[in-house]
Write a protein that binds this DNA or RNA. Structure first.
Lengths: 128, 128
DNA sequence: AATTACACTTGTGACTTGCAAGTGACTATT
DNA sequence: AATAGTCACTTGCAAGTCACAAGTGTAATT
């Protein structure tokens, strides 16, 4: 999941977030979660090594920004970048789709579904 | 990638199509491709075993319908079901996002981006 | 000094993927 | 009639990714 398979925008998106976990973490961030332990607490039960790996990957790709929220002991928090936040419409469409076609899925809160994002000017993903 | 991790519609969607290939195959189907050899010919270069596996998985999950288009020798074609076609908005949003944020991605044809789908009545995914 | 909290890292085995080659049913060509 | 070709796969194996459990480093708390 590192370099790009083709110029197709769909495959490019999947090369960045086309796995079982990245968009779950982004979803949590959109809902205000910021810390490692908060992501671990989600019902999908991501494991610690995969979480650390995905956070690092998304940071390298410019989807997530890592900041130190406390020195001594050093503690970090993770927030979605503009590029990361701009994936909200993808998450919203997935939600609408699953609510229609996958029985038993819950309906997300209005504040999640109604939120609108605005694209900023494009920037380079800052690949590794 | 088989049973559901939580009731979250995003995680449910990812449980069905959250891998590197399923949505690429669906994209090809949305663009009219129907046959095994056509999917293999795409620039992303899926391998034969993964293609066979994903087609079977998506068929079992009700995203794809397999029909025999010729007896003697038996030949099959794969078309997206309504459930599969309903993922178009997800693909469109991914395209918009990548065109904005991932340099070098091509812009999909208008007929792909402008197409609109209508949700039918919900139906059960037809688990395996 | 021992315990707790947070944010990870490491080790191991199981599962999934990529790559290459082979198979079976037929059709077309020589 | 034998050979070659097409299509839609299947099989085998090595390499990569994942889940699960345990351990590490820094510092505050008791």
């Amino acid at each position: 999941m590192e370099n790009t398979r083709s110029g197709c925008p769909i495959s490019a998106t999947l090369d960045l977030v086309g796995d079982r976990w990245s968009l779950i973490i982004l979803r949590d961030m959109m809902n205000g979660k910021r810390r490692y332990s908060e992501f671990l607490a989600s019902p999908e039960q991501i494991t610690t090594n995969v979480l650390a790996d995905r956070l690092g990957q998304m940071e390298r790709h410019g989807l997530v920004e890592k900041t130190t929220y406390q020195m001594r002991p050093k503690r970090y928090e993770y927030a979605p970048s503009e590029m990361g936040r701009a994936l909200l419409p993808v998450l919203q469409q997935m939600s609408l789709w699953a609510n229609h076609y996958v029985p038993g899925t819950w309906v997300p809160p209005e504040q999640f579904m109604k939120r609108r994002i605005a694209f900023g000017r494009p920037h380079d993903g800052g690949g590794e």
